[in-house]
Every structure is written in C-alpha cells, then in structure tokens.
C-alpha cells in the first residue's frame, strides 16, 4: 500500500495518505515505521569488508591472504607422512613423517609475524605477512584482497660434504603476492605469484631465483568444511632440474577454535622453499604425501572495546 503512494502524483498521493492514515490498521502502520527506518540507512552507501575468504592462514602448503587478526596467536602443527606408494613395509608412508611447528601472531588486523621449524633439513623459518588490500562491497568496492608475504629460511643441518656451509649459504628467501577473491560465501580463489631466492644451489645450471605462479581455492561443502586445491606452476625459464610443480588437494574442517586440514600433495616440505622450489614427487605416479595441518587460535589481547 505504501509503495502505491509513491507512484501516484504528489497531491493525489497526499490525499490517499490522509485517507489511508485514517483507515490503516496498526499492523500496516508498523510495517511503515520499519520501512521508514530502513530508508534512513540505505545499505548501498555503507562499505563493508569481505572477510573469512579462507578458514585458515594456509590454503594447503602455502599461505592464504588470511591473517589472524589483532591480538590473536595461532599455533600451527603441520605434518606430512611418507609417500603412499612406499609400500606395506613402510605402512604406506605412515612410518616416516616430517613436521613443522609454527607460531604466528597478529600485531594488527593486517600485520602478522610468524616463526616455524621444519624437521625437513632442520629448517628454521620466519615470515612477515601484510594484508595490503581488503576486498569490500558497497561504496568504493575493492574486488580483491591482496596480502604481501616475505619469508626467510635457515637450514641448520650438519652437512658432511666439501662445501663450506656459511650462514649466507644456508639462507633461502621467499616473496609472494597473494591475490584472492571471495566470489560467494562458498567459493574463494587465490592467485600467488612467487619468487624463491636460493643463496646456494646444487649446480651451476640451477637458477638462484625460481619464479612460480600458484593458484588455488576453496569450495565450501558445508558451513564448516571445504574442499581445497593448490597448484604451483614453475616458470620454465627458471625451473630447477628434477623439480616438479606442486599439486595439493585438501579438505578443511573447522570446529570452534580449531581448523583441521587434511590433504594429499606431491610436496614433502611445508614452507615455500621446499614445496615451490623443491617438489620431487610425481602426483600421478603415487608419490603422494598424506598430511594435515592443525590450527589452534589463542586470543592474547582482546579487541580494544573489551580491554579494561
């Protein structure tokens, strides 16, 4: 009835309003007052950030644009068993395992710093992650989220070869621009241009700088589970010999403060220098590492409104 008033010429509308006002039942009048209120705050003028593009800070092996948020500490346990095709003698890979333990902390909603240690080559790593752009809707909408990522890795392995393993030679650096868009509440896709700089390489033919482009995404199956895919394509010009593109398929389960991620991948390592620049397994020949990531969130500092 209300909409009818607006379509009519002003005077006639006003007249109808008078009549309508006298005849209106309370229920119709109540409808009006809520509509009036809604009109005061048209939704299109407010911009809102699209969050929860991914459930975890990891897609599978690599990072997502997601940062934990101010005051939140994430404890991350990542595990990869041996290859599935290693036979019953090795219990299809379960006899061997590599692990990475990590801690990351959100200093602000955008800035995260993390450290970790991988059992593979006894590697320590640290990284900085900064959410440069946040996807948003409404006025001045931003179509994608962009997170910048930089990490350094130090292998502490004792070598028995003729090379003098200086500190510099033990370092590897990784740089990523993570670009993601949440297309719907269920579907998010991510693009990851990547550069790995290795200070020490095996032969003269091997490049120090390895370029790769990763892409992946998640499709939610239910509110709390999703199917994930991640693929890193090595740029042929800088592809190290004997190294394959990394492919991973995973399944995420979220339960309150935990996210469990189960996956199979042809990469054994869990940091960029390993899975981007040193993946050996052939996914389609069964060189598959079954693994999982467990994320546990702790709130170290509550949001400002609640700090007393």
């Amino acid at each position: 009835m209300r909409e009818l008033y607006f379509r009519l010429p002003g005077t006639l509308g006003a007249l109808l309003l008078l009549v309508g006002g006298l005849l209106a039942t309370p229920a119709q009048a109540q409808d009006d007052i809520l509509n009036e209120l809604e009109q005061q705050t048209p939704p299109s003028t407010t911009s809102s950030v699209v969050d929860a593009t991914f459930k975890s800070s990891r897609l599978i092996n690599g990072h997502t644009i997601q940062t934990p948020g101010k005051g939140t500490m994430v404890f991350l346990i990542s595990h990869r068993f041996g290859t599935l095709n290693s036979g019953p003698y090795n219990f299809f890979g379960l006899d061997q395992a590599t692990i990475r333990l990590g801690l990351e902390y959100g200093f602000t909603d955008r800035l995260t710093v993390g450290v970790g240690r991988s059992s593979l080559e006894k590697t320590l790593d640290s990284f900085v992650k900064y959410k440069a752009l946040r996807q948003s809707t409404g006025a001045h909408a931003m179509p994608v989220s962009v997170t910048l990522f930089a990490s350094s890795a130090l292998t502490t392995l004792r070598y028995n070869d003729q090379v003098e393993h200086t500190l510099a030679r033990r370092m590897t650096y990784s740089y990523q621009g993570l670009i993601a868009r949440k297309f719907s509440p269920a579907l998010s896709l991510q693009l990851m241009p990547t550069l790995i700089h290795r200070n020490l390489v095996a032969t003269d033919q091997d490049p120090h700088d390895v370029y790769a482009v990763g892409f992946g995404g998640r499709q939610k199956l239910t509110k709390r589970t999703s199917l994930n895919l991640e693929y890193y394509y090595l740029v042929p010009a800088t592809k190290p010999s004997e190294v394959r593109n990394s492919l991973a398929v995973g399944f995420d389960i979220e339960t309150g403060g935990h996210v469990f991620q189960l996956h199979v991948t042809n990469s054994q390592g869990m940091i960029e220098k390993f899975f981007v620049a040193n993946t050996q397994g052939n996914f389609f020949k069964g060189d598959l590492y079954f693994g999982f990531n467990v994320n546990r969130n702790f709130t170290l500092r509550t949001q400002d409104k609640f700090s007393k």
């Binding site: 934990p68 939140t72 959100g106 403060g257 969130n297 709130t299 949001q303 609640f306």
Partner: peptide
C-alpha cells in the same frame, strides 16, 4: 557491526 572479544 557486532564486535567480539576474539576476532575468530
């Protein structure tokens, strides 16, 4: 617009 103690 609801804000919680914990971001998660």
């Amino acid at each position: 617009t609801f804000e919680f103690k914990r971001t998660l």
